[in-house]
């Protein structure tokens, strides 16, 4: 049905895993950008809190990066 309505959809060729990773990398990409952008802004506003802000940046970065890497391994799991 979907293929009839949208003939383009039926023509997605190549490795679907890489397409999925491309889609999965959008969210973490935005997230990492927000984390470091806001972190730098926070350090610029309150330089005396640099250490605390850096730590929280790292923790947020680790959590966000984990999502990107889940997207990387999921194609290996669901073959």
């Amino acid at each position: 049905m979907l293929a009839e309505a949208l003939p383009v959809v039926a023509e997605v060729k190549g490795n679907l895993g890489s397409v999925a990773y491309g889609l999965a990398a959008i969210g973490p990409g935005i997230g990492v950008g927000i984390i470091f952008g806001q972190g730098v802004q926070a350090i610029a506003r309150q330089p005396e809190l640099t250490n605390v802000i850096r730590q929280n940046m790292l923790l947020g970065f680790a959590l966000t990066e984990a999502l990107a890497l889940i997207g990387f391994v999921v194609p290996f799991v669901h073959k």
Partner: peptide, 21 residues
């Protein structure tokens, strides 16, 4: 296993870099 490993790696990262120096 992947999720467990993810959790353990995050714990390791938090332990290594999350302390107040």
């Amino acid at each position: 296993g992947i999720l467990v490993g993810l959790a353990l790696a995050l714990y390791l990262v938090f332990h290594r870099y999350g302390r107040t120096s």
